[in-house]
Simulated scan of single mutants.
Amino acid sequence: MGQSVIAPARVGIIGVGAIAGQYLASFPKLANVHLVAVADLDMERARSVAEAAPIPGVRALTVDELLADPEVDVVLNLTIPRAHADIALRAIAAGKDVYGEKPLTATVAEGVEVLAAAEAAGVRVASAPDTVLGTGVQTARAAVDAGAIGRPISATATMVTPGHERWHPNPDFYYVPGGGPLLDMGPYYVTALVTLLGPVTSVIGAASHTRDERTIGSGPRAGERIPVSTDSHVTGVLTHASGALSTLFMSFDAVATRSSNIEIHGETASLIVPDPNGFAGDVQIRRLGEDGWETLPVSAGYPEASRGIGLDDFAGTPAGETPRTSGALALHVLEIMESVLISAHTGTAVPIVSTAERPAAVSQG
């Protein structure tokens, strides 16, 4: 990894909800970033997180205070998806780089606005997911790039869960426009597919939902019913620029799948890629004419990676080079997902306007 412009970059988190704990646990292991402040609409929660942070000296600030703080170089945007664009634009206006949780923004139009604002301001924007930088997807990519499966033909990506309301104490945002299984979990799978097979040129989709209400299963609101106003079961077919076809199956309605993984099929072999919501896992190959699956040795990716490795990689990317978790990649992934949903309601294929280069590979270690 190259050296960051400011090493380490000073990071301020906005939004310290459920996902923040995973990032906080990673900070002591990250070389290119240093956490200096946290902010939240709930100041009491911000103070509690600052006091419990595994890094000394973290300050609890209001959102406005953090955005104006000259000691914050990068805003780590962990707000809910519908707030991503607002916080990103405010951070950009304050002259700060932005790294956000997925998706980049709630809509493609917002994403275009954010990237245009960043370019005009001379700051950088990047976005999760960073799971694709781990040893699982990167080892699979190394195999594809080495020709281990021959010419790639197709891929399947499967994610099935009966719904996040079973465990999340405030799951409302999963079931409104901007939520649903595709926009929530799809970024892991679609980013992995673009990393493995390259950009997408068109999509077609279908979608449904089985229930108009969900019941919260944990926390102080357990038993409360919430409305569903977005699709909770989505399928799609992605046509990559290479000619390969990927099939998505994303559901908050079905019960389970034996493995939430990706399969890549080529002319001479097939690969099983581990769950892209994780960083590691076995990559298996079955070659033409062979009877069984072989587990490939780890050959690429950040070892023992966790949430935050993308932020660290972003901060360590030299000025003028494209970060692996670039805003352009995140916008392309967002357009793919939004277009699948548009196609589901129009019944026609939708061309993808944006494109993104496959991010640079992560060499072993």
Rank of each mutant, 00 (worst) to 15 (best):
E263C: 05
D313E: 11
P162M: 02
P81K: 07
V194I: 13
P152K: 07
A157W: 01
S251H: 04
T139S: 06
L329M: 05
L238K: 13
D64N: 11
L248A: 11
T156F: 01
L238R: 14
T230M: 04
E101W: 15
A349K: 07
N77C: 12
V33T: 04
V123Q: 13
S260K: 03
P199E: 01
T247G: 00
P56G: 05
K102C: 10
G310P: 09
T268D: 12
E263M: 07
I264Q: 00
T257F: 00
I272Y: 13
D282P: 05
Y23L: 10
E338P: 10
P276L: 01
S326G: 10
I153M: 08
E357H: 08
A146Q: 15
G163L: 07
T158H: 12
I262A: 02
Y23W: 09
H209E: 06
K102D: 06
H34F: 13
A37W: 10
D172C: 06
R166K: 07
P274R: 09
S127M: 14
A52H: 04
R47N: 12
A117T: 05
K96R: 13
I55M: 15
G134L: 14
I262Q: 03
Y188T: 01
S4R: 08
Y174F: 14
G243Y: 03
L288E: 00
S242P: 00
Y189Q: 00
A117F: 02
G198K: 12
R45Q: 10
E267N: 00
G198W: 09
G163D: 04
A31P: 01
M250K: 11
L248I: 14
A256K: 06
A53N: 07
T210W: 09
P303Q: 09
L61A: 05
T322D: 00
S260G: 02
T107S: 07
V234P: 12
L66S: 07
A109I: 15
D40P: 03
A25N: 02
E119F: 00
I226L: 11
D184R: 15
E290R: 05
E321L: 04
L104S: 08
A39Y: 01
T235V: 10
I342T: 05
S4A: 11
P359S: 03
P274G: 08
H84K: 00
L331M: 12
P129W: 10
K29V: 15
L67V: 03
A140T: 14
E335A: 03
G150V: 01
A118G: 02
A53D: 08
G15V: 11
D231E: 07
Y189P: 01
